[in-house]
Design a protein around this nucleic acid. Sequence first.
DNA 1: CGTAAGATGAAG
DNA 2: TTCATCTTACGG
Length: 181
Amino acid sequence: MKIDLHDTKKAAKLLLGKEIEFNNCKGIIVETEAYLYNDPSCHAYKGKTPRNAPMFEKAGTVYVYFTYGMYFCMNIVTNSEGVGEAVLIRGIKPTGGIEEMAERRKQTKITNLCSGPGKLCQAFGIDKNCNNTFLGEKIKINDIGYKVGKIVSCHRIGIHEEKPKNLRFYIEKEKNFVSKT
DNA sequence: CGTAAGATGAAG
DNA sequence: TTCATCTTACGG
């Protein structure tokens, strides 16, 4: 799967509607956020550390990090090697392996399986073993010709910033599968 | 419905 | 102590 991942903001929108496949589970990406190198809330803002090192790899690297003591979040690294930028996957609409996801999530409602970055990693069974791997090695992204339709952009979630940058994107018609608040 | 707090660990 | 989170418990 070839997607132009140089421009992080464009990549965030391009990833919407793509199919993600991992661990015998599939889903459509319906919500993303862009993190730019000059953004104080970007993990890579203050430079390279052991934790965020994958963000400085070449575009298409997968960056999985552990947060709040119990959850993983998945990013797709963008821009050029040496530039710390990435797109956070925030929401997925499940299309395959749903029973496995429900088992791992201990939830039955399909809209509550992947509606949030921590949830979708748990549902897919994504953990730090996927960190610093390349798209296609473990996690795959496919273009299945899904028609995205209207894309909504607004402020990001869980980030306090004075002047909101509209770097969160989601598919309007799939908002049932998007994180709340 | 809504809001509040707890779980739980890595980094600064 | 903060954090790119989520779930559960409790009040109305």
